[in-house]
Design a protein around this nucleic acid. Sequence first.
DNA 1: CGGCATCCTCTTTGATACTG
DNA 2: CAGTATCAAAGAGGATGCCG
Lengths: 215, 215
Amino acid sequence: MRTYDHYCGAARALDVVGDRWTLLIVRELLARDGCRYTDLQYGLPGIATNLLANRLRELEEHGIVTREAAPPPVATTLFRLTERGRALRPVLTALGEWGAPLLQDECGEFRSHWLALPLERRLRDHRPDGPPVTIEVRTGDQPLLIQTDDGGVRVRPGTVATPDATLTGAPPVVLGLLVGELDLTAACAHGLEFRGDPDALRRLAPAADAEAPSR
Amino acid sequence: MRTYDHYCGAARALDVVGDRWTLLIVRELLARDGCRYTDLQYGLPGIATNLLANRLRELEEHGIVTREAAPPPVATTLFRLTERGRALRPVLTALGEWGAPLLQDECGEFRSHWLALPLERRLRDHRPDGPPVTIEVRTGDQPLLIQTDDGGVRVRPGTVATPDATLTGAPPVVLGLLVGELDLTAACAHGLEFRGDPDALRRLAPAADAEAPSR
DNA sequence: CGGCATCCTCTTTGATACTG
DNA sequence: CAGTATCAAAGAGGATGCCG
């Protein structure tokens, strides 16, 4: 990128991460650190492969990403964020908050791990002294786990044998429920399937508070 | 901009404000709302005029900027941010914070009003019940006023007859002093000229705490 | 298969000149 | 003052090839 050459923090930041796709690559690594090249391609539908390679090189040169040869069991290159790279999280969350109203009901491309950042930002454990709780979310391509973690939550891809609750539905409904735009009744009316303990959900997303569905 | 078409808040935000120059135009309007076209050109050194015109049209279409015909005394078009546009401030401040370490001693282009956002974010009035205080900053192109305002500060271009203090010096030194990287002694050693009441400065930037310079 | 590099086309940006 | 018009240069997108 051509530099703006402005003596201004925001402009200097955009000199480094203002190129097309760059911040979305950081989004990927924030949601799932330690990605292979192909994981990144999968999480960035639409990116051209030469562009991904170029951006990764630039991010490495700027000290935002490191490339690490994984030991034999995996035997592949893993891309990780540096501390400086993780420091971009507030930029991504600010963008995500501002863009949230633009998430209409039409999905476009979707990967379930894209929910990780907004959910970790917006969900809180409202009974942090209670026993840990795990909610499994089935939406989009891969199941996701939401787990209580020190007053907040951790979100990561995966499944577990006996989650406290399981949410299944289209991304807009799942997201609407978890961020409190829909209550459980309304979400079920929009096709959400809920199994397990409504209290587990209430504990994390009290704005979604409602009676359990009639089943 | 071609859309990323990702069902993700950050990607949707970048669909709208991810183009080159776009966020810097918003920076200009956050620092000095109600700008003329030529003010924007002045505050965005390096932008091509056709690009500025295009971006302003796009920002208008997205409901971020409004164009307003000012009444006869001014008789010109004023560009302003909408509420939705002002909601981008957290994005700009997050970028500015991340980019702050990239502000080396070499300036490049500089406009003093670029200090407004970082200073409003970082300075606090630590004696909010005291009488109001005004500091005049002379760095770069135009003088700037820092005024206490409800526990924080307001920064705007201008001068005043009798400021409580006046800071004159190169942008890196002024900025270093105000954000607490330099104390007053160190700043003076780097060419800062300070006049007035050191307590006024201490009240806003206590990290810059130090004895008054020996003069 | 994972991780790119090359080639080509198309779009966006930049620089400058000109206009109501 | 607030843009449009024009043209060259850079960047992005897409397909394919290469190599361990």
